[in-house]
Design a protein around this nucleic acid. Structure first.
Lengths: 195, 195
DNA sequence: GTTAAAACCGACCGCCGGGTCTAAATAGCT
DNA sequence: AGCTATTTAGACCCGGCGGTCGGTTTTAAC
């Protein structure tokens, strides 16, 4: 059952949810329909459980936890992004943004699933905002900076670069992206510029 | 035939390519299978023609042409983004980034289609890079700025915010996003900061 | 060893989607 | 009007997919 979810996630990620049949998942593990529908009500239910059991935790440990420290916030964020993108470069299952793909796939097509995915986004956003506010409080970040704005901007940029990195010179793009992120961060630091 | 393409694009955009059947397109226009397969070899061919006939032109007029002027490059880009995102807010068919959605859908699933979509991206990127270089030449942009880096960063951010804007307070996010973009641009201007 | 519950098997159903094919309609031309 | 070429109609085929169901095996408790 755990195995089903793991290989289900891999397949859904690489081939897309609607483009992956239940049989595909079962073939991978040499299991039968019976086994599947004993454990899960439906394909959708299966996917929701994958989100809850695998996705949220991985994303939490990859994008939330790493920036909860009390050191220089912007450094935490940039090395967190750096790590996440590095796993993406190596074509590994980039839990960092499996999410982005799924959001694109389910948008306006499956409200139920979208609720779960949006919830993850929301948590990430809240966490980014509070990290930035912490940075302002600690004096690392200029106090005029709009925390919500920066959060939206960072999420956008990160999700976008993930799309751009697939199939086209990923490591070069990662490098360029990260250096711009750092440049952008420099402009947010205290005693340098203001918003 | 033109009508087929137009309503095909609308449906593919709103429901997804794989989630839209040929019959759906035909139902919309009260046409029959015969009419469709007389004009197009396959569903895929149909889609490729939509890309070539509708998508590239619209994107060209929305994201390429507007930044080809010789005024302050960064201003051109930001008002170009502003316009494109504004149409997205109003749930209109945002040709600006229909592209982003499709790239996400076809990534790693259909190489043939991806070739066409990547080509559009490539043109956009080249155009951004040369716009930025023009800005450096004109003295509006700091000469230390990495034009390729900025281009990748802008494309990422733009594509990402499009994802983020769907289904969750789009206009607030657009506003925040744009103000961060402008802030970022300020840090690229000549005689202020360097990379 | 018996028994009941948990887990699994795989044939089967109904539906839908892409694509084919033949016949009919329509348009264009003389 | 008559004839050809273009365009449509829609019945049909086939493969795949989500889901069901009756039955078999495995597990575990006593």
């Amino acid at each position: 059952m755990q195995r089903m979810q793991v290989s289900g996630l891999h397949l859904f990620y690489s081939k897309g949810y609607y483009n992956t049949s239940v049989d595909d998942v079962l073939k991978e593990l040499s299991l039968s329909k019976g086994a599947f529908y004993y454990h899960f009500d439906s394909k959708e239910d299966f996917f929701v459980q994958i989100i809850e059991n695998l996705l949220v935790r991985k994303i939490y440990s990859m994008l939330i936890e790493p920036i909860e420290g009390h050191e220089h916030t912007l450094d935490l964020i940039s090395s967190c992004f750096e790590n996440a993108l590095e796993t993406a470069v190596h074509n590994e299952l980039d839990y960092g943004f499996v999410l982005s793909n799924f959001i694109n796939e389910f948008n306006g097509r499956n409200a139920k699933v979208m609720k779960h995915l949006n919830e993850i986004l929301r948590v990430w956003e809240v966490n980014l905002v509070s990290a930035i506010q912490r940075g302002k409080f600690n004096g690392h970040i200029d106090r005029h900076v709009d925390a919500e704005g920066v959060a939206v901007f960072l999420m956008s940029a990160y999700m976008g670069v993930r799309t751009l990195m697939v199939e086209m010179t990923p490591s070069a793009r990662k490098y360029r992206f990260m250096s711009q992120i750092r440049h952008y961060f420099k402009s947010l630091e205290a005693k340098t510029t203001s918003v």
